[in-house]
Design a protein around this nucleic acid. Structure first.
Length: 480
RNA sequence: GCCCCCAUCGUCUAGCGGCCUAGGACACCACCCUUUCAAGGUGGCAGCACGGGUUCGAAUCCCGUUGGGGGUGCCA
């Protein structure tokens, strides 16, 4: 039987990095089977919380990740099938109407009682009304076994599962039922999702058997695979409220999709051998659900960033330059990071110059959004004024001014304004002042680039040109 | 409360009874290289939660304890 998997996100907020990992694992499974199918199904059955912009965010995220799928489908489109399933279950006696409000249930149980429905309406034989929800009659004893490829068989006490609601009083199916009906209709073979859904699995198993019994169908239920949760430093499930979970944010910060995918694959799984930097083809080749770890994984941005740096360095210079454009090119570009503000005017930007800068900066950034600050002094009339740096390297340094004066003179007399010549000359003037090159380059760097760290100084000055370099040395002298 | 899951360096993990003196990666530290910063190289720090079993032998199997986490909606 060909693998049929799905991603079933709800459009209630940003596309979560955890959703991205779930998507990736599902996609991998489908890719491993020549006939595998990966479905994207947007679970939009809660009109209260859904927003169309979040639906778009799901599509955008999937497109960026490059995970191809069948669809997208909307759960709401399958409402007729949900209704038919509801009717079949009701006719078979698996369901009953309930008009209890949560407050009423709580009141009956008394303050401080454990949560859960008390079965009050189970035998009341209520008829449908505008305020009756439909509940599933669940078994009171026995165990429900959930087949799980990651964890083995997980057994649940039936007594701990109360009669849950499958349809709102409005008549619409709820997630619990809609999800199962859709998985049945889509002939899903593997339900791969986060561990927060593990507790739903026994309920869904119950629904599967009730549904098959009520409809006379014999669709085999899927096998489950509950992936370890992604957690924050406090070991809590990543939350949209306080953790940086929006996939979009990582794209905005200049994380490369390959690095993100690679890192995500390593959360709960690891490739054979010692190399952790692996391409998706390798992952598809080696991945097995049975090998997925059982314990929660901390989403470590520092490691992601280290991976990103490796991916950035592996780019061709041309590829790197192209990928940098959303951050550095004020003109027309394929897309923009949210909150983008041009770092310099369009008429100051020089794509050709930037491409010559690439070798100086590519191995120095781990994220693409670091690039503007690294090259701004080329595209700005005056370099950034980091006063603290200027104080340290020029004003407070007893020889700061002397170095700048010597450089201004020596650079003016240079025959060829090349990196090699600048290097040699600077070495010389440093020596005559009794300084090491390391010490002497600081005030010059600060005067020319505005900063204490940046791309190699002599190469930078050569590209900047004699006039602009000397003008900056003079300007710095005037400020010192 | 109840149900369920989990437990190897700070973090992600390898390990599926002897190959473990517990391996790798990120982070951190030191040194080397060096025009700053990176990158790169070398080395280092650091872990099997605890207690019982089972076994000739346990990080690996079983039980318990402790500790984390998830779920417990007319949300998904």
């Amino acid at each position: 039987m060909p693998v049929r998997v799905r991603l079933a996100p709800s459009p209630t907020g940003y596309f979560h990095v955890g959703t991205a990992r779930t998507a990736l694992f599902n996609w991998i499974l489908a890719k491993q089977d020549p006939e595998g199918v990966f479905i994207l199904r947007v679970e939009d059955t809660d009109p209260e919380r859904n927003r169309e912009e979040w639906v778009e965010a799901i599509y955008a995220a999937m497109a960026w990740l490059g995970l191809d799928y069948t669809g997208p489908f909307r759960q709401s489109e399958n409402a007729p099938s949900h209704a038919a399933a509801l009717e079949a279950l009701r006719a078979a006696g698996s369901l009953y109407y309930c008009d209890c409000t949560p407050a009423e249930v709580d009141a009956r149980k008394g303050a401080g009682a454990p949560p859960g429905y008390d079965g009050f309406c189970r035998e009341r034989g209520l008829a449908r009304s505008a305020r009756t929800a439909l509940r599933l009659r669940t078994p009171d004893e026995g165990v429900i076994v959930v087949p799980d490829l990651v964890r083995g068989e997980v057994a649940f006490q039936a007594s701990a599962i109360d009669d849950f609601v499958v349809a709102r009083s409005s008549g619409e199916a709820l997630y619990a039922l809609a999800n199962v009906v859709d998985d049945r209709d889509d002939r899903i073979t593997h339900v791969v999702r986060g561990e927060e859904h593990l507790a739903n699995a026994p309920k869904q198993m119950l629904l599967w058997s009730a549904l098959n019994a009520a409809t006379g169908l014999e669709v085999p239920p899927p096998v489950f695979a509950h992936l370890p949760l992604l957690v924050n430093e406090q070991r809590k499930k990543l939350s949209k409220r306080r953790d940086p979970v929006a996939l979009e944010m990582y794209r905005d910060q200049g994380y490369l999709v390959g690095a993100v995918l690679n890192y995500l694959a390593l959360l709960g799984w690891s490739p054979r051998g010692e190399d952790e930097i692996v391409d998706m083809a390798t992952v598809v080749e080696q991945f097995r659900l049975e090998d997925v770890a059982h314990s929660p994984a901390f989403f470590d941005v520092r490691k992601l960033t280290a991976f990103n740096g490796a991916y950035v360095r592996a780019l061709s210079p041309e590829g790197f330059a192209e990928l940098c454009r959303p951050w550095v090119d004020p003109g027309e570009v394929p897309w923009r990071p949210s909150g983008y503000r041009p770092a310099w005017d369009e008429d100051h930007y020089d794509a050709d110059l930037f491409s010559r800068l690439v070798p100086l900066i590519q191995e120095r950034v781990a994220r693409l959004d670091e690039v503007p600050a690294m090259v701004d002094f080329f595209f700005l009339d005056a370099p950034a004024h980091d006063e603290a740096a200027f104080d340290q390297a020029v004003r407070r340094d007893p020889l700061g001014r002397a170095v700048l004066e010597a450089a201004a003179g020596a650079y003016g007399a240079l025959e060829g304004f090349t990196a090699e010549a600048l290097h040699a000359t600077t070495l010389e003037l440093a020596g005559s002042l009794g300084l090491t090159l390391r010490k002497a380059q600081a005030p010059i760097r600060c005067a020319v680039t505005g900063r204490l760290v940046g791309p190699p100084l002599f190469e930078s000055m050569a590209l900047l040109g004699r006039e602009r370099t000397r003008a900056r040395l003079a300007a710095a002298l005037a400020r010192a």
